[in-house]
Design a protein around this nucleic acid. Structure first.
Ligand SMILES: [Mn+2]
Ligand SMILES: [Mn+2]
Ligand SMILES: [Zn+2]
Ligand SMILES: [Zn+2]
Lengths: 140, 140
DNA sequence: TTTATAAACGAAAACCATTTTCATTTAGAT
DNA sequence: ATCTAAATGAAAATGGTTTTCGTTTATAAA
């Protein structure tokens, strides 16, 4: 599954560097969203020298080529997670354990029509963030 | 219409201060979302002394009591706008002129059900941000 | 109207996530 | 092996937001 991401990297002219590969590995083993700071700590377990700017650069590049998504929490910080789905969909985020789950749902076509009808305007993009408690956190 | 907000202030134990009243006036005459910095500039036209912390404090308090809503744009900055609607709905935001328009639409009941069915999880909150071009900006 | 008190405020500094700069290193092509 | 643009680290800068703390003010009680 990592291979698919590596292809995407090369398709966008990004070199296959050890740091980038390790970021992919960490993110693919992580089911929760993660802060650049925490990712930096995890990367330092493998690399003696890795700067926070590199972490930020990699995450932004990955976001640009569509392999990670960012969310902004109430603490005014960015968090990132990896999503390998291709179809249009949204994510459910557990407010306790921060796990991210794909939800087969997107109502954008309907929204576009409503925006046209009600406001004579053109809806181009939308962001939907759904939060709550995941199955495990509900049970514990 | 400002009177309704003043009642809300007092209901939540917030004093009726000149700064707060002027923030309400500015926001109610503004159809676009606004940054704390720009609000600060506008407030300085009326008050010789007003600090940026006060602006931030007022906006946060207004958000807490539900008379303003904040959004975070791609520049990682917070913007605020006033919404006097009571029913559950969402907003359409013009990416060019930044005007905010209410949209009579909310699919949360459906989303809750899907989250329960697909993920055995409990959806508690949701944020939907719709962006595009408003009628005026489409025509110009 | 005066007084008391908690809330509100301004000024200054602190905070801290994120970005920029620039010199050095490295991946990948030739 | 050589070359070159991309990638990186270190350090500093940036800038939105928050904290601190001493002073002022709104508001209710006396
Ligand atoms: Mn997904
Ligand atoms: Mn509204
Ligand atoms: Zn959870
Ligand atoms: Zn517009």
């Amino acid at each position: 599954m990592i291979n698919k991401y590596i292809e995407t990297l090369q398709k966008h002219g990004l070199k296959r560097t050890p740091k980038r590969l390790e970021v992919l590995r960490i993110l693919s083993e992580e089911s929760a969203y993660i802060s650049p700071q925490k990712l930096h700590v995890l990367l330092k377990e493998k690399f003696l020298k890795i700067g926070l700017p590199t972490v930020y650069r990699i995450l932004q590049q990955f976001q640009n080529i569509g392999i990670v998504t960012s969310i902004q929490q109430d603490d005014n910080q960015l968090y990132y997670y990896l999503c390998d789905c291709v179809e249009k969909h949204h994510h459910f985020i557990c407010r306790k354990c921060h796990k991210v789950s794909c939800l087969t749902y997107c109502d954008f076509d309907n929204i576009k029509q409503l925006v046209a009808d009600q406001l004579d305007s053109l809806a181009e993009t939308h962001v939907l963030q759904i939060e709550g408690l995941c199955k495990e956190c509900l049970e514990s």
